Structures are given as structure tokens and as C-alpha cells.
Simulated assay, not measured.
Amino acid sequence: MSILFKGLAEPSRMTIMRALMIEAELCVCDVASLLQAPVANASHHLRSLHRIGLVKHRKDGKLVWYSLDDEHVRSILQLAMVHEEETEAPHVQA
């Protein structure tokens, strides 16, 4: 689980995951536009998310489309978002 949460801890990756909750699929160019980053950076983040099992991809000609891997991933993200909304500030312990 630590690999999963480490992958989600990166702000750009969390932005991608939130977008994939709204859109069924996004291509690398869509993600690059969303992040306002080069396609190479977007592709790197998507490969990382794929490697840890959070997103899946399909090829359509030269385009690669990404989507959430399954409903478990969607549930994890929805629970995290609800928790974030209910929590005023992060709890930090020394």
C-alpha cells in the first residue's frame, strides 16, 4: 500500500487521478494540457501511475488513452476526497 499512496502523494499525479474520475479517458496530450507541462512529463506521470496499478491504457493508432484501472481505484479516491472535505487541516504528529 505504501507504493500506492506514495504514487498519489505527488500533486501532478493526484491532479491526473481527479481528472480521470471526471473523464472516462484522457490521452497523453490531454494530460499535458491539464498539467500545463510538456508531453514527456505527462507521459512520465502516467507511466508511473500505470506501473503501480492505478491506471490502465489502450492504444488507438498513435494515441494512448488512459483511464482508472478499476472501480476499487475510484472508491479509494472518492473516500480520500470525502475525508479531505471533512478535515479542516492535515493532522501532523511529531
Rank of each mutant, 00 (worst) to 15 (best):
D30S: 02
E84A: 08
L68P: 02
D30M: 01
M81K: 10
H44C: 11
M21Y: 01
A24L: 11
E85L: 11
M17G: 01
V31S: 00
E23W: 10
N41R: 12
A42D: 06
V64L: 08
R51M: 11
V55Q: 00
A24E: 13
A80N: 04
V39H: 06
H44W: 08
G53K: 01
H45K: 04
V92I: 14
E25C: 10
L8M: 15
S67M: 04
H45M: 05
T15P: 08
G7Q: 02
S33K: 15
T15V: 14
R13T: 00
A80E: 03
S43A: 10
H50W: 06
A37D: 07
K6W: 10
D30P: 00
S43C: 06
A32M: 05
R13M: 00
V82H: 10
E84Q: 06
A80V: 05
L46R: 05
C29F: 07
C29H: 09
L35R: 04
M81G: 11
M1D: 08
D60A: 15
L68G: 01
I52H: 02
A9H: 07
S2E: 12
L26T: 01
M1G: 12
V55G: 00
V73D: 00
S33N: 14
H57D: 09
A32C: 07
Y66R: 02
Q78I: 04
V31I: 01
V55E: 00
L79I: 13
V28T: 15
A42G: 08
L63Y: 06
H72S: 12
K56W: 04
H57F: 07
H50Q: 13
A80Y: 03
D70F: 04
V73Q: 01
A24N: 13
L49C: 03
Y66H: 06
C27K: 09
D69K: 08
K6S: 13
V39L: 05
I16E: 02
S2V: 15
Q93S: 15
K59E: 09
K62E: 14
A40P: 07
A40H: 09
W65C: 00
Q78Y: 04
G53Q: 02
A94L: 14
V55F: 00
C29V: 13
I16C: 02
I22M: 09
L4G: 04
V39P: 03
I3D: 14
E71N: 09
T87S: 13
G53T: 03
W65H: 03
I3T: 15
A9S: 14
L63Q: 09
